[in-house]
């Protein structure tokens, strides 16, 4: 009799506890719910937005979608290791090194059109994913440097090969205090 009673109390106590904690958890889940962006948006935020297509997708957003659907995170050469690390953090997976099949991380470049050679074919304008090339048919084209993402996509379509990718120049405001790399001028 007393045994039954003991078991009953135990069951009741545990049941009651479970109920209370369940309620607390449920309440917390509702009350402290963290609103977050959809995953694709978050991934897209991390990607460098060069829209270069080196990942094999026609832009950063589609690749973000693909990552969200389970594609590898190491297909973005412009973002490099930094982007992979961030993606790994976001996706909760191991960061791996850049997939060499998609290219190598390179210094930042911008497209430059050798304007006297440009024939005004507008092919590069159509290729540019961010509308950073200005020009009209039969007119010389030029690149808006500030808008160029350095995606390389305009180089191939050019029939006269007048587009170069030139590295962005260092300037004092983007200098990262790498004192050791200051070029020392020899003074005679």
């Amino acid at each position: 009799m007393s045994l039954t009673f003991a078991i009953l109390t135990a069951l009741l106590a545990i049941g009651l506890l479970a109920l209370i904690f369940g309620l607390v958890l449920g309440f917390a889940a509702v009350k402290f719910k963290v609103e977050s962006d959809p995953l694709v948006e978050q991934i897209d935020q991390i990607l460098p937005q060069t829209q270069c297509g080196q990942c094999g997708y026609p832009g950063c957003k589609p690749y973000a979608q693909a990552i969200a659907d389970g594609d590898e995170i190491n297909k973005c050469p412009p973002g490099g290791d930094a982007t992979i690390k961030k993606l790994a953090d976001l996706m909760g997976v191991e960061a791996k090194s850049l997939d060499a099949a998609h290219g190598q991380e390179d210094i930042k470049k911008v497209a430059y059109i050798r304007e006297d050679e440009c024939i005004g074919c507008t092919k590069c304008i159509q290729a540019c994913p961010v509308d950073a090339i200005l020009g009209a048919a039969k007119q010389m084209h030029t690149v808006i440097v500030d808008e160029c993402t350095g995606c390389d996509l305009c180089v191939d379509p050019c029939p006269v090969d007048c587009i170069d990718m030139i590295p962005l120049a260092n300037n004092a405001s983007s200098w990262r205090w790498n004192i050791d790399s200051i070029p020392i001028k020899q003074i005679g």
Binding site: D44, L47, P48, Q49, T50, Q51, G59, C60, K61, P129, V130, D131, A132, E147, T149, S173, S174, W175, R176, W177
Partner: peptide, 25 residues
């Protein structure tokens, strides 16, 4: 600080690029 500034600049640039890309699409 320099890295944060560069990162912020990059962020701004990439936001702009995204915007331009989406607008173009």
């Amino acid at each position: 600080k320099a890295e944060i500034r560069v990162e912020q600049e990059d962020k701004q640039k990439s936001d702009k690029a995204r915007d331009r890309f989406e607008k173009r699409e």
